[in-house]
Design a protein around this nucleic acid. Sequence first.
DNA 1: CATTGACGTGTCAAGAGTGGAATGTAAAGT
DNA 2: ACTTTACATTCCACTCTTGACACGTCAATG
Lengths: 173, 173
Amino acid sequence: MSLRHAVLGLLAERPASGYDLMKLFETSLSHVWSATQSQVYGELGKLADSGLVEVAAEGPRGRKEYAITDPGRAELRHWLVETEPSRTRRSDSLLRVFFLGLLTPLEAQTYLLTEAERSARQLAGLKEAEAAIEWDDDPLSLHGRLALEYGKRLSAMHEEWARWAAEQLKAGR
Amino acid sequence: MSLRHAVLGLLAERPASGYDLMKLFETSLSHVWSATQSQVYGELGKLADSGLVEVAAEGPRGRKEYAITDPGRAELRHWLVETEPSRTRRSDSLLRVFFLGLLTPLEAQTYLLTEAERSARQLAGLKEAEAAIEWDDDPLSLHGRLALEYGKRLSAMHEEWARWAAEQLKAGR
DNA sequence: CATTGACGTGTCAAGAGTGGAATGTAAAGT
DNA sequence: ACTTTACATTCCACTCTTGACACGTCAATG
């Protein structure tokens, strides 16, 4: 249900077309929220119907530039300050850990160490991305930075945990 | 798509009815994967159709006890060792961070500190749960412990990060 | 014996999310 | 002039997930 708010949030920065939004999802939001083209256009239609956004301008190639409206801004604010983030507990990689007992101890350790390496690679990728981005003073950048730091800490934690867990399995026999 | 594997994994430990599985989802797997009753029964039906599980016994009240089959075990193993955990990046709470610029600095800091407290409470809850559980030698327990440790580390990291981020916002002005 | 509560299975509607295809226009390069 | 690339929207078919509802059984309690 947060796709709606992701779109509103992006439009709150500046007006954009569906196409623009998709690119924003792929770039700035890629590590935080993903959306496909069908979702974005669909959501824009629904948001327009309920008056939270409006078509502010039409451009070449049938381009429709959407802008957030006052009710839209109110809804966004409401979401930010008055609703709790949903704790959707669902992790594919953690689920596997529960069933590691079905593998041989060696296989299980291999799985965990592979996970550790995946995380290490991801951390490296994030650091690279961080270095590559020109951090302008745009508010999305500022807060994007906070999110990036979260990603870095998460990767690091995941790696350490996986190595620890592999160690536990080794010691447990 | 991992609900299927969660069900298979649980049935690999021991045969169970749909009702039993639901309780397992609510207890042992609650922090890792959630499932509703409709999903569980629906998935059991599909799994039975494709021969990955079978009805091993029928009990009172129309109870059907399902057991994993050899093809089921093969599928589970295949999932564990040969497929990559899906990195579905979608975090409600992180999405909000991107849009914190729409609030006043004070409101944004409040949000982050509230997040920190939520995490602290969660960590406390996990520690409590850890103390309360009798850890038998059942393989689900052993690996459940690893997952619990993950949860603890995640909560701790989340809290630290939120406090750090709030500090950043304060310093940034 | 009547009621209550835990046990147990199942269906349905609606919404969220995925993945792909169809269709076309404008701009830029060769 | 021609072709490619980028821009831009819309539609479709499918699966997954949620939440509620409907139905029925067994065991214990007062």
